[in-house]
Design a protein around this nucleic acid. Structure first.
Lengths: 112, 112
DNA sequence: ACATCATATTCCGATATAGGCATGTGTCAA
DNA sequence: TTGACACATGCCTATATCGGAATATGATGT
């Protein structure tokens, strides 16, 4: 047996940097394959392939618009990752703070 | 180029089911390689290999105790995953609820 | 020194990837 | 219909995985 398919689940799909970058970009709204190609400087075929993987795990959805295809993020599909990760949250915060407080801290750090 | 190494970052390390299971098990405290073998029913060599990967990305630490080796979770290393995933959180909740409320809901669901 | 227990490493085979490049499919406009 | 544009797919190579089996390393007790 080899490594699990990238389409096996969201964890595998998201393990790839490029795909994470694509998702981050789509965070700002619908985008065309060409938009992604230009913005992230990835060859068009690879973008299409990555989008295929992301579509298979439901991380993105698409709709056709003329000869373009608009891709949009489906963040719901990331739930399993958040859920799984969050179960360990209390462990790295000895005072068992709530997660939102933790996230607030992160935002403050980013501000500096 | 092939797929990124499993030790390339935490995302890749955590993409593997077995490794996630090992981390979940270690959530309950230090454990021996043998403990993991027994509890998760994975062959010993594969457990050692998985632990190697997890160690390389700092997700676990180890200490020797006689002829045993005790592995413990280092949840800090999961931060990048939580941070990255959390940035999309507001998107899957139209009312922009706080994340802790979201988690509370999850707990209730699990209770049933 | 030796046998034993606990863990790590190596070799193997099967599989699947990501990127590069060429090509196919589909849509629009003249 | 033809050409141009947007996107998808196929083929190829290099690489890295996972599991299984065998073996190596390391510590313990006698």
């Amino acid at each position: 047996m080899a490594r699990a398919a990238t389409t096996a689940d969201v964890f595998n799909a998201v393990a790839e940097r490029r795909r994470r970058e694509i998702l981050e970009y789509l965070d700002s709204g619908e985008a065309t394959v060409g938009d992604i190609v230009d913005r992230l400087d990835i060859a068009q075929p690879q973008v299409s392939k990555h989008l295929r993987v992301l579509r298979e795990v439901e991380l993105v959805r698409s709709r056709s618009a003329g000869r373009h295809k608009l891709y949009r993020l489906n963040p719901e599909a990331l739930r399993p990752v958040l859920e799984w990760t969050a179960r360990f949250e209390q462990l790295w915060n000895e005072r068992y703070d709530r997660l939102d407080a933790y996230l607030d801290d992160l935002q403050e750090e980013e501000r500096e």
